[in-house]
Amino acid sequence: MIDAIASLGRSSLNALEVFGRAFVFLLRVLASLDVVLRRFGLTVVQIHSVGVRSLLIIVVSGLFVGMVLGYQGYITLVNFGAAEALGGVVALSLVRELGPVVTALLFAGRAGSALTAELGLMKTTEQLSAMEMMAVNPYRRIFAPRFVAGFVSMPLLAAIFSAVGVMGGYLVGVGLLGVDSGAYFSQMQAVTDWNEDVLSGVIKSIVFGFVVTWIAVFQGFNAQPTSEGISRATTQTVVISSLAVLGLDFILTGLMFGTG
């Protein structure tokens, strides 16, 4: 009985400790952000590996999600004789929810896991300690550029996802199902507001980018330096970031649209 309570206490203390370390880690990364301006090349290479190389999966999924939205929206709307409202349905669901959330989930799977594995392996092969030996600060050389790269790439990827999705919905709705092309866009413009819908989506994607990159980089930094530890850290990155994104999305949606 006493043992059970003690083990509960131990696991809560461990959880708290990890959380505290993640926060201290974040502060130290934020404190070394000036390297991004001084050595911009480091960040460019990271944006390439995190953002540019995620483009394919984002564009393809955006296209298919938009096309499916076009189909499903049409099937439901046509019952009410409101197939013309398809554009609005597709645009609102993409810009407000699916764009930021699905992009963040894909981003965690595609870029977050890669970040964790890379950093975990660096730690395992003691490259980070070697850097410190050479008086190179790994926070500035390694962590800060990767952090900024994820933070910058995510909103851009989400915007591309939404834009491609709108075109996918157009392809299916107008091309295949015969919704009027003018009605598709005029309905869309009538219901979608720049401030309220598009900008809220962008804010969401900025928050998600911050959280996912934070989790990914910290998991790599915190990984146990064994092959098993790297595999666990990579899994943890995907699981924790996905849960964090979905949970945060609920909170952000409540804050942004709840009172409206």
Binding site: V44, I47, H48, G51, V52, L55, A91, V95, S153, P155, L156, L157, A159, I160, S162, A163, V164, V166, F185, M188, Q189, T192, D193, W194, D197, V198, V202
Partner: peptide
């Protein structure tokens, strides 16, 4: 590559601003 990526992203935002909203 990064330049093209950033341009694409801004282009997508612009598209959302003008065509969608």
């Amino acid at each position: 590559a990064v330049g093209v990526f950033v341009l694409l992203g801004i282009g997508a935002l612009f598209y959302l601003a003008v065509q969608v909203s």
